[in-house]
Design a protein around this nucleic acid. Sequence first.
DNA 1: CTTCTATTCAACCGAACAGTTGAATACAAG
DNA 2: CTTGTATTCAACTGTTCGGTTGAATAGAAG
Lengths: 117, 117
Amino acid sequence: MVADRLSRVMSALADPTRRDMVARLAVGDATVNELAAPYDVTLQAVSKHLKVLEDAGLVSRRRDAQRRPVHLEAEVLDLMTAWIDRYRRQAEERYRRLDEVLRSMPDEPPPPTPTDR
Amino acid sequence: MVADRLSRVMSALADPTRRDMVARLAVGDATVNELAAPYDVTLQAVSKHLKVLEDAGLVSRRRDAQRRPVHLEAEVLDLMTAWIDRYRRQAEERYRRLDEVLRSMPDEPPPPTPTDR
DNA sequence: CTTCTATTCAACCGAACAGTTGAATACAAG
DNA sequence: CTTGTATTCAACTGTTCGGTTGAATAGAAG
């Protein structure tokens, strides 16, 4: 599937294990083995989780001998923040204006409005 | 499945159609039929998408005769913002400190560090 | 009561997902 | 060259997901 970037980022972070990995990588880079330690799943499963994070652009990997240290690309999170902010702000703006309208016409006995769809 | 709230919100917004619905609901409430109009899927599919958004707490629904107007609960988005900010900030902080360290010791011929894990 | 409109429920389908086991690859080191 | 460690690839499995069709419910209106 070739989902857009934002969809990949969001669905990558929809998983608690992957969010926890990101949280731990915010502290510093780590190898696959180190990352896998706290979870009760196979190393292969962790490797797959990392691939999902990598495909979303959330992490990158160096090569250090047989190790593949994982690095958090924190800027990608801004993609989400940008999307969220836009619509949260738009919604807030709307409420603000609705409030104003309601305040500016305090008494208007609302008729049954039968033909009002 | 009983995923935690944040996971439900993120996975709800991992779908482009549902993100688009949220975007349109930021402009104002809408009925299921109105919401369905732009998409080339059945009404039932749209109804399912709305259920996902509702289970995530992202929308609520009134009852207006046979219509069920959908309303965006924009505050829920703050949940995501809070999570993101925390780790992005943490990562940034780390780089800032790393930069300082690197600047404070400008010349140190890095040895091969053979026993350095 | 019947019909029309709006919406949901139920059952089903194929694709994607998260996990598993087992084999393979990539290096380091004896 | 052989062994050990770190990681990934491949194949399989059960579950979830986004969609479908068809039937059901809720209320407005003739």
